[in-house]
């Protein structure tokens, strides 16, 4: 565990907390993509199956349980409790266009052809693109509430911080995981346009609005 890694994990946790607080306080999930949330739940469930097979540390198990349970809670809030506020018509990204290529890619490019390893690889690939329905929703409506922007910024920062962690671990421990590094870079690149808008607009107190 190094500082980049810890900061990345905390940023990830913060993103989830911001999201839940936003939904709970405003009693609304307007502007949020339920499809991205379904993809994230799928990511955590397929990645953290080793929770029942391998014990790594209390921290590791605790975070895995938190990520799985909060993503399921978010889905419950969006599709059940606050269903009436869910922006269904704008959330029209076809997630099978992401899931199917990730399934194929994980079957072809993986480091071990075992059930757990292929599912882990699938989750890494899927996570890198899971935010696309949310970004698509923002681009469709042309704007995002500040709180949604903070959520996206924290969520995007997490993988960017992981890249620093991977660089550090490569030099400090000789540890590297090519699949995770490659997908993590793709994931971070997808946020770049958003990061730019966040810094130039949201941090200056303006609403995130896309140029027409």
């Amino acid at each position: 565990m190094n500082l980049f890694r810890l900061a990345g994990d905390l940023s990830h946790l913060l993103a989830i907390i911001i999201l839940l607080i936003k939904i709970w306080k405003t009693r609304s999930c307007a502007g949020l993509s339920g499809k991205s949330q379904i993809l994230f739940a799928l990511v955590y469930i397929t990645r953290y199956l080793d929770l029942v097979t391998t014990y790594i540390s209390l921290y590791n198990s605790f975070m895995k349980v938190i990520f799985i349970s909060t993503s399921l809670a978010t889905i419950y809030l969006m599709y059940s409790k606050f269903r009436a506020t869910y922006d269904k018509n704008h959330d029209s990204f076809r997630i099978e266009f992401l899931i199917i290529p990730c399934v194929i890619l994980s079957l072809v490019i993986n480091s071990n052809f075992t059930v757990l390893e292929v599912l882990w690889t699938f989750s890494i690939y899927l996570e890198s693109v899971a935010i696309l329905p949310q970004l698509f929703l923002v681009s469709k409506t042309g704007e995002a509430e500040s709180i949604t922007s903070h959520y996206l910024f924290a969520l995007g920062s997490y993988r960017a911080l992981y890249i620093l962690n991977w660089i550090y671990r490569y030099y400090a421990e000789g540890h590297y995981e090519l699949i995770a590094i490659f997908a993590g870079c793709v994931q971070t690149i997808l946020y770049c346009d958003f990061f730019y808008l966040y810094v130039t607009k949201v941090l200056k107190g303006k609403k995130l609005q896309l140029p027409a």
Binding site: R5, D9, H12, D50, T54, I56, S57, N60, M63, K64, F67, N112, E117, W120, Y162, N165, H175, E177, A180
Partner: peptide, 10 residues
């Protein structure tokens, strides 16, 4: 991954 192929990252 450690020597048993376990992943310590999240």
């Amino acid at each position: 991954k450690d020597e048993f192929g376990n992943k310590d990252e999240l």
